[in-house]
Design a protein around this nucleic acid. Structure first.
Length: 300
DNA sequence: AAATCGGGGAG
DNA sequence: CTCCCAGATTT
């Protein structure tokens, strides 16, 4: 018997009222743009690493117009090692779209949010709930795990999100805007602090008594083995990361020879550099003389 | 539905 | 060492 929506929500909301972390993008004076920036930074990057980056980022570029007017090289340097630099590129594109399409105001409708670069279903729902206090179905990795355990009685959700899963999650979202927005934050927080992927702290969980997974004796993950572990060492992602690090730290244009030195496999390196140029993360400038090698830099 | 895209810190 | 993190986009 899975818990009813009320059986799950009420203890989690009460727990959240006591245990919510004091994160800067939850402060009373944060802007809708600040919320959007935090959500993009938090896409696949842990809270502890985002927090200091968010503070300095918002101090430097408080509004969409500020970020829209910045040099892309500065944006990529400020992004530093938050991972997936394409997100930084899209965040700046997003700022420009907000300025051009919405007069510099972050939109408050789901279709308009989804149309922004770098904003998918999760981020759109999160901005609606956290910036505007509106009801939405916020289904991130934390909420997916909380519902998989408490409702479905399984250790972890399926590798990819299904339509059925969204429908199920919708049934647990409160009807009114304010409570729905709190539920979004509370259920995410429970997944982040208690109902964690590695070693869940069921002993302090506010919904232990209604949790289907706990009742079943915490059975192991049924998808174990089928889960794709993204390796990193030796992959294109590592090579791209090295090239980006080199260009971030460079004061001026970087000679091709310096780029060649970051990775021993010349073919793989060339493929990665071409990819970075195609992605708009790197600019290749031809040399003065035709037979000389080009130089590389971050895009201006 | 699956692959790709960074990087780091906990276990 | 492996695993996972407030995902989005492309194929």
């Amino acid at each position: 018997m899975p818990p009813t929506p009320a059986e799950l929500r009420e203890p989690v909301l009460a727990w959240f009222a006591v245990h919510a972390r004091d994160l800067p993008w939850r402060a009373a004076d944060r802007s809708a743009w600040g919320v959007l920036v935090s959500e993009v930074m938090l896409q696949q990057t842990p809270v502890v690493r985002v927090e200091p980056a968010w503070r300095s980022w918002m101090a430097r570029w408080p509004t969409p117009a500020d970020l829209a007017a910045a040099s892309t090289a500065d944006v990529l340097r400020a992004w530093d090692r938050l991972g997936y630099p394409r997100r930084a590129l899209r965040l700046q594109e997003c700022a420009r779209a907000v300025v051009e399409r919405h007069d510099g105001i972050v939109p408050s409708s789901e279709p308009e949010l989804l149309a922004l670069p770098g904003v998918g279903s999760y981020t759109a729902a999160a901005v609606l709930a956290f910036a505007y206090g509106r009801r939405s179905v916020v289904l991130d990795t934390n909420v997916r795990r909380v519902l998989a355990r408490t409702v479905d009685g399984v250790a972890l959700p399926a590798p990819s999100q299904t339509v059925d899963e969204v429908r199920r999650a919708t049934r647990y979202v409160p009807d009114d805007d304010a409570t729905a927005a709190r539920w979004a934050a509370a259920s995410m927080e429970l997944g982040a602090l208690v109902c964690t992927a590695r070693s869940p702290r069921c002993d302090v969980c506010p919904v232990q008594d209604v949790c289907a997974w706990y009742a079943a004796g915490r059975p192991a993950d049924e998808h174990a083995g089928r889960r794709k572990v993204q390796t990193f060492t030796g992959t294109d992602r590592q090579v791209r990361g090295r090239v980006m690090a080199l260009l971030r730290d460079a004061l001026g244009p970087v000679p091709a020879a310096a780029v060649d030195a970051v990775w021993p496999d010349a073919r793989q390196l060339a493929r990665c550099v071409d990819g970075l140029v195609a992605d708009g993360l790197v600019t290749r400038d031809p040399a003065a003389s035709v037979d000389d090698p080009p130089t590389y830099r971050l895009p201006s």
